[in-house]
Design a protein around this nucleic acid. Structure first.
Lengths: 139, 139
DNA sequence: AAACACCTTTGAGTGCACTCGAAGGCAAGG
DNA sequence: CCTTGCCTTCGAGTGCACTCAAAGGTGTTT
C-alpha cells in the first residue's frame, strides 16, 4: 500500500501555498519533493505535515533563513536536538514579547475608543483631552 | 510661558525615530512641524504625545496610508469621530485576531519544545513522532 | 491536434517602510 | 573661518518574501 501522491497543483491548494511558492521554498531548501519518472514533483501526507509545521514556525515570526538553518540541523540528526530546541525557544520568547507589546499598544487603542465613546455620549467632559484621560489610568 | 522647543536632532532621540523618518512622516502628512524664522523645524511636548500615539497605532498593525486617512479625518473635526472610532475598532479587531493566530502557532511550537524535552529525557518513546504526539491533544 | 499540467533557468517586479547620499545652501557658536 | 546642524529636492538602495513572465521543453488527456 502506497500513500496518495499529490502533484504540485493539487498540493498547492491543499497547503494554501502557490506552486510558485512551493518551488521557491524548495529552492531555498525548506522543503524537498520527490519526482516521478518524468521529473514531475509529487508530495505525500508526510509533506503536508511538514509544510504545516513550517507554517507554524513562520506564523510565530521565524524568518526563512532561520527556518533554513533549522532544516539543516534536522538533516544532521538527533545530535542537533539541543540546538533546535534552543532555536524554537528563542522564537517562542520573541513571539511572546511581541504579543506583550502588541497588547500594550492595544490597551491604548482601546482607551482611545472608550474616550471617543465618552465624548460621543458626553460622559467625558468636552474639555478633557485624551492625554488627560489616559493619565488617569497611570496612578 | 512657552513650552520647550525641540529641534529635529533632539526630538529624534526623544521619540526614537530618525530625523530621516520624521521628515518622511511629515512628507506623508502624518505629522506637522512648526518652523522658526529660518525655516528650521521645531517640535513641542504636544508633538511628543502625537508621535507616541501614532506609534501605538502603528504598533497594532495600522499601515501608513490608513494612518494618513486617520489624520485627514482628525483635521476635519469632531464630525468624523464616528469614522475614526470605526477605524480604530477595525485595527483592534484585526490585531486581536493576529494575536489569537499567533497564540495558536505558539501552542504548536511549545508542544514541539516539550516533545524535544520528552525525547531527550526519554519520557516519550523513541518511536513516537511529533505528529503522533500532537494528535494526543486533539481528542 | 490542441489543451493542460508540469518542468527548467533567469531575471524582473511588487509592497512596505524606511534609509541614505548627493549637491547645494543658510545661520549660530567656538 | 570652520564646524555643526539644519534646510531642500530627488532619486536610488535595502530587506523580506514572494510573484510572475519569458521561452522553450515533456508527457498525458480530450
Amino acid at each position: 500500500m502506497h500513500e496518495k501522491q499529490y502533484r504540485i497543483g493539487e498540493f498547492s491548494k491543499l497547503v494554501g501555498l502557490s506552486a510558485y511558492t512551493l518551488r521557491y521554498y524548495e529552492d531555498q531548501d525548506l522543503i524537498l519533493s520527490q519526482r516521478d519518472e518524468n521529473g514531475v514533483r509529487y508530495y505525500t501526507a508526510e509533506d503536508i505535515r511538514w509544510i504545516g509545521f513550517i507554517l507554524h514556525l513562520k506564523g510565530t515570526g521565524m524568518r526563512l533563513n532561520e527556518l533554513k538553518r533549522y532544516v539543516q540541523l534536522r538533516a544532521q540528526g538527533d545530535g542537533t536536538i539541543g540546538e533546535r530546541r534552543a532555536m524554537l525557544q528563542k522564537v517562542k520568547d520573541d513571539a511572546e514579547a511581541d504579543i506583550a507589546e502588541l497588547q500594550m499598544h492595544l490597551k491604548v487603542l482601546s482607551r482611545k475608543i472608550d474616550w471617543y465613546d465618552g465624548k460621543t455620549d458626553h460622559t467625558i467632559p468636552d474639555t478633557e483631552s485624551f492625554h488627560d484621560y489616559l493619565q488617569k489610568f497611570n496612578k
